[in-house]
Write a protein that binds this DNA or RNA. Structure first.
Length: 111
DNA sequence: AGGGTGACGATCA
DNA sequence: ATGATCGCCACCC
């Protein structure tokens, strides 16, 4: 049994705070990735921590965070819900993935 | 104290 | 494109 159901880890308070801020900074109609949020929060390589924060936290626009390449990494109904939520705010998909070229959020935006 | 785990990511076959 | 494997690392029991 390689997969037993386990509660997901909660991130450290400060790490969680910074990650939450980065997630909340993603505007409606835009998306980012776990790795991208981690880097934006100052923790490159902490993609898994980002996922843990999203799952554990409340009131976050969790649907705007995707796996690399714009792929939804959730399973089952949650994956469908994420897709519906994104489409509801104008995010378009190309097959199974979000059209990152059009929707990926970049902090550095200067025209 | 120590091994298992995961809403990841990159790489290889 | 799909599936396996490895690196990562805070968290859980």
């Amino acid at each position: 049994m390689a997969q037993k159901k386990r509660k997901l880890p909660k991130a450290s308070p400060d790490l969680r705070l910074l990650i939450e801020q980065a997630v909340r900074a993603i505007p409606r109609g835009k998306v980012s990735t776990y790795g991208g949020v981690a880097r934006a929060a100052g923790f490159p390589g902490a993609a898994r921590r980002v996922a843990a924060v999203l799952r554990n936290g409340f009131g976050l626009p969790w649907q705007r965070v995707l796996g690399s390449g714009g792929e939804i990494k959730l399973r089952g109904d949650s994956a469908l819900e994420q897709r519906f939520r994104l489409e509801a705010e104008g995010v378009r998909f190309r097959g199974k993935k979000v059209d990152m070229k059009a929707h990926e959020w970049k902090v550095r935006r200067r025209g």
